[in-house]
């Protein structure tokens, strides 16, 4: 294995389900505490202390949910595709499990971004749904998640399902920028110069700092849910192994 030395040691350790299960278990409480503090603090800040927007009034406060969930939905797809690629290339089981655990979290974040965007649209544009470029791309991203999840549940063999899903996720990842630009271009063609939800020339600090807090809180939330799901998947996959039996019997 001399030719593979350029990869750090923890990369190989991660491949051990037991090690990964334990490290996730150790990290979980820290991330849970961070998530709770940041979520509660960020929500209070964004709801009560951040100033209202001079144009949109208090409906602007929806940004503190809409933007973090949209960012998370996108980066979750990225992680899913990268983990899938690692699983395909290095045949690493843990990467497959990470990819599988990502899909439902990302899909629910896409739903949240879509719903909050739609609710925001009502006071801003006067209707519950507008074919805005960002909302439409988010809808497509949601469809991509649905496709990945449908394919994963349709294939019975777990390893085949993981590989097929990884290929689909990679194809989706390559296509996301193309879809995004085509949708943006289509939008400018049909609705020239509409009022954009989140594009502000310059946001004052008292507005973007709570937004940043919420984004970090959402990432902590993502880490917590991902680790919980990953631990479940490891337990399921490794249920016949010795260390899981020990763990079960010690309970």
């Amino acid at each position: 294995m001399a030719e593979k030395k350029w990869l750090p040691r923890w990369f190989y350790q991660l491949a051990s389900p037991r090690w990964c299960y334990q490290i996730c278990g150790k990290l979980l409480p820290w991330f849970t505490v961070a998530m709770l503090l940041l979520l509660v603090g960020g929500t209070a800040w964004s709801l009560a202390f951040a100033p209202a927007d001079y144009q949109q009034g208090n409906s602007f406060r929806i940004i503190y949910l809409h933007v973090p969930s949209a960012i998370l939905a996108q980066s979750c797809y990225m992680l899913m595709a990268v983990a899938g690629a690692i699983g395909l290339i290095w045949k690493m089981k843990i990467a497959d499990l990470v990819a599988k655990s990502c899909a439902p979290i990302g899909a629910s974040m896409a739903i949240l971004a879509l719903l909050t965007g739609a609710i925001w649209g009502k006071p801003t544009w006067g209707s519950w749904w507008v074919w805005d470029a960002r909302l439409t791309s988010m809808l497509v991203l949601f469809f991509l998640y649905l496709g990945v999840m449908a394919l994963n549940s349709a294939i019975e063999s777990e390893s085949t399902a993981a590989q097929a899903t990884a290929v689909l996720a990679l194809v989706g990842l390559v296509n996301i920028p193309i879809i995004k630009y085509s949708v943006e271009w289509w939008n400018t063609l049909h609705q020239p110069a509409t009022f954009k939800l989140t594009e502000k020339p310059a946001m004052p600090a008292e507005m973007w700092v709570p937004l940043l807090v919420m984004v970090i809180a959402f990432y902590c939330f993502f880490a917590v849910v991902l680790m919980m799901r990953l631990r479940n998947e490891i337990l399921r996959r490794e249920r016949r192994s010795g260390w899981v039996k020990e763990l079960l019997l010690s309970n």
Binding site: L146, L151, A154, A164, N175, W186
Partner: peptide, 25 residues
Amino acid sequence: LTVGLRKGGVLISLLVLPLYIPVLI
């Protein structure tokens, strides 16, 4: 991706339709 599945028909459209959007536009 779906050739090994008995009911591939509907699944294909779910997987592929989002990718068709740029071509349609």
